[in-house]
Amino acid sequence: MDLNEMLHYAFIQRALIAGSFIAVLCAVLGVLLVLRRLSLIGDGLAHVAFGSVALGLVLRVSPLYASIPLVTASSLGILKLMEKARIYGDAAVGIVSSLGIAGGVLLASMAGGFNVDLFSYLFGNILSISLGDVITSIAVSSIVLLVVYFYYHDILSLTFDEEFAKASGINAARINSIIVMLTAVTVVLTMKIVGVMLTSALLILPAVTAFQVARGFGKAIVIASAVSLFSVFAGIILSFSMNLPAGASIVIVNFLLFAFMFACRGIRSTVKKQ
């Protein structure tokens, strides 16, 4: 089957549209999170999302409606733990993450074990997303990108040097809360595409790939977005044409791009030295 024929399928069109928006969304947030050494917050919140999906399935409400408030509250919980309990971000993420997965396992066990629905959230499937999911992805991505556009310099200053940013009159607590809440919503959306297990890959890999070559913060965001978009497109095409799982294909393409950029950087610095 050629690409043209493939693009005629409505489910492929939905996957590509939603995937593009979520790809850019993850790339932009990923750059901020990786630079703030909060790379694994995506992973931690995805585990909370797993617990929330289990809760939604037990209570027979849409997993999305259960996940968004719970994951958002958990993201703020991570911030509070870092501020008030005086622990590093990785430990705070670890606490919330394990609590989320433990809650999910307990709920699944009380409901009579894991079922197909819960498993579908573990590994995701972009090829099965609905028109409603596409609209939600576009809406949320647009909001996040607008927030980053309007707060660009606040975010850059805070990410580079929090103390100096505060001394410049930037409201660090507000910006930090906005970033983690946006991450929470993004994780819930991304879960549908690559699943709980691989969500953090979409946040981390495009960002670290961009850092291999980017010369400037703005350029890093643009390159990470391009890498992420390419990975989602290539992953979906690979998945459809070779009958592979979509989420895993997207992550593998992402990793290959990282490996390529990493090698290019190595070659460039060797040539420079010579």
């Binding site: 630079l35 050494r37 990410t159 580079f160 040097d161 010369r215 400037g216």
Partner: peptide, 8 residues
């Protein structure tokens, strides 16, 4: 105290 790998 800043990240030396910061791409700025």
């Amino acid at each position: 105290s800043f990240n030396p790998h910061f791409p700025s």
